[in-house]
Design a protein around this nucleic acid. Structure first.
Lengths: 237, 237
DNA sequence: GTCTATAGGTGGATAGAC
DNA sequence: GTCTATCCACCTATAGAC
């Protein structure tokens, strides 16, 4: 992160080697991610990770400083691009809309698309890895003592603010209190879908196809849109 | 579980002692639950649990056989009653409805009420414990190698089947494929709400009150009901 | 930057006295 | 049923040679 001098840059001049991109740091991140998905973050020992990476046990401490820092790096590497893209998509929509509010459906789509694109990956192994990453994020979010929770929340912060503002404009008649609650319900539905969509396949005995990411996305957006637009309830206090 | 002989029964004749219910087994379960919530399941060592319980390290192995068995017992003890009550509430609704379909709102309410009742506990410490239990359940569900996942799924199985059937009757025009997907979205919204409702308070800068469990429940049910009843999307394959 | 060796600690489990 | 003492596997982290 603070690696501004990039002392490795002068080494790999070989074009073939540059194509393979097998720098230890990256290989370690890949291996860690794979193992986190397979056995869980806590249970993935540095010994197992470095073995998987074909690297030395001490290399993790050289490149990251600690296991916790490695964990954080794994999450930051994935979540950064996704959340940046969410914000960029929304920005583009707002530019197109000019002084109008962005349509609800478009906002929701911009929110889920960057995640769903990962799940839709052509390579089944990559798609599976994406599902497991989503699962890891939910796991991290529900582990208050875990080292990844903070990263996930920080990476999500700007997304949350921007999309809440956009939703407030798209749903001008919805009381702010309802907006916050419904945003929360929406995040829950989406997180559970991204992390456990395979469950729908077994729940429906194969009728629903979790690999049909586009269909899943459309259904999810439709469900959430209907929920957001529903009537406000009278809440007696 | 297979404790049919109950060899302890002959011991505590004292009425005062019976009221306190301080049998080691139960004390261990309480202590474990408390520690799981505080530091996470994996990070709660048997040493810390038995210290918290005022019991001996070896007592866990005597009463449960292993740490994994203790973990499973903690979850089973809580989830059993909740899920049994969900089913009972639904059964009662169906008896009242006779040959009619149970109204959607009532079905949803029966689904969430037993969970929300825990969160609404008068004692703030108990209410907090309930939130953390919900968080533990979500955590367990997202940890494929964890010993609690299987228990959670097994305890939920009958609930799932019963409520899916009831929803199918309440929403006769909804294609089955949509029903499965929307049920999944619903579970996600509810799980995230039960486990992380405190986030809404900080998200809304205090405007939303996560302690107002009744208001939260009504909003959640309204959101999900609107989502379930929304129009089916045309999905191109 | 990589690797070996090892320090220093904690974990779950169990044998056997009481 | 309870408790002590102990086994042994495994972990992260680091020092220091190359």
């Amino acid at each position: 992160m603070a690696d501004l001098t990039t002392p490795e840059a002068q080494i790999s001049e070989d074009p073939a080697e540059a194509g393979i991109r097998s720098e230890t740091r990256e290989v370690l991140l890949d291996a860690a991610e794979r193992l986190f998905a397979r056995v869980g973050i806590e249970r993935a020992s540095l010994r197992a990770i470095t073995r998987e990476a074909g690297a030395n046990l001490a290399s993790v401490h050289y490149h990251f400083g600690s296991k916790d820092a490695l964990i954080q790096a794994v999450f930051a590497r994935r979540l950064g691009p996704i959340n940046r893209e969410r914000v960029e998509l929304l920005t583009r929509l707002q530019e197109e809309a000019g002084s109008e509010a962005v349509p609800l459906h478009d906002i929701l789509f911009a929110f889920v698309e960057p995640v769903m694109r990962m799940l839709r990956h052509r390579d089944p192994a990559e798609a599976r890895a994406a599902h497991e990453l989503a699962r890891l994020v939910v796991q991290a979010l529900n582990d208050p003592e875990g080292p990844a929770r903070e990263i996930v929340l920080r990476e999500f912060h700007e997304v949350k603010e921007r999309f809440l503002a956009a939703l407030a404009r798209a749903l001008p008649d919805l009381p702010r209190e309802d907006l916050f609650w419904r945003f929360h319900f929406m995040v829950g539905a989406m997180a559970h879908t991204a992390s456990s969509s395979y469950m729908v396949a077994q729940l429906s005995d194969g009728l629903c196809d979790a690999c049909d990411v586009d269909g899943m996305t459309e259904r999810l957006v439709a469900f959430v849109a209907a929920g957001l637009q529903g009537p406000s309830v009278e809440v007696r206090r």
